[in-house]
């Protein structure tokens, strides 16, 4: 949430209409330094222009067919350290979780407004995670929160702590970070910390359900 800083952004999407649309909608403190339309061009572009944040479509042509996931993996292999924000037209958890597992810091749908996208980009640039209600719902699902499982230690990877569950519940209910913070009487920073912790668990956890779920959908 620091609008005084200029963030360098690269947009990777195979639809030129969407790219130009997004470009014109982004807030002025976000400067688009590059665009690409497929996996190979995207990887080259990111490694060349070295942006802070990459807006990455989940479904991309080219490469070996891995789409956004492949871009993230190849950029990381090539030594690039940008942060990725996944964009998708689909709300299907399948699409989203593979890019999150690959290392994306968040996910928003393409129908989000320009202001929402800009906000999410700033968040990701500051090192925080961006959760949509759908993604939060999925997290609750896969970590068994609906069944009442709770982690007792904060570093337990396979479960969410009680506080993290509360935060995820509110986000899944459509609350913004600010609303979540005031509802739980904590600071926004604390909410962001919780959300980042959940993201880390989602990326690192080898929880049985998550693994089985991912295997079933050929994500691993």
């Amino acid at each position: 949430m620091t609008p005084d800083r200029i963030h360098r952004v690269v947009i990777i999407d195979d639809h030129s209409i969407f790219r130009s649309g997004l470009r014109s909608e982004l807030a002025p403190d976000l400067s688009v330094v590059g665009e690409a339309a497929d996996v190979d061009a995207g990887v080259t572009e990111i490694l060349e222009s070295n942006p802070e944040v990459v807006l990455l479509d989940v479904h991309l042509p080219g490469g070996s067919g891995g789409g956004g996931t492949e871009v993230i993996e190849r950029v990381h292999a090539g030594g690039g350290q940008p942060r990725f924000l996944a964009l998708s037209v689909s709300d299907a958890a399948d699409d989203v979780v593979s890019v999150i597992r690959a290392g994306a810091r968040g996910y928003i749908t393409k129908s989000s407004s320009g202001a929402e996208v800009s906000d999410a980009v700033r968040r990701v640039a500051d090192g925080d995670a961006v959760f949509s209600p759908k993604l939060a719902g999925f997290v609750l699902d896969v970590f068994g929160a609906a069944g009442g499982e709770t982690a007792h230690a904060d570093d337990e990877l396979d479960r969410l702590s009680a506080r993290e569950q509360e935060v995820m519940r509110l986000i899944a209910r459509g609350y913004s970070y600010r609303e979540t913070a005031s509802e739980l009487y904590i600071s926004i920073k604390t909410v962001e910390t919780h959300v980042s912790a959940v993201l880390r668990k989602l990326q690192l956890s080898s929880r049985h359900e998550l693994t089985a779920w991912a295997l079933e959908r050929k994500l691993l």
Partner: peptide
């Protein structure tokens, strides 16, 4: 998925 859905997303955004 690649064409129509994307276009619909753009329409909603614009």
């Amino acid at each position: 998925h690649d064409s129509v859905l994307q276009t619909l997303a753009v329409i909603q955004q614009k």
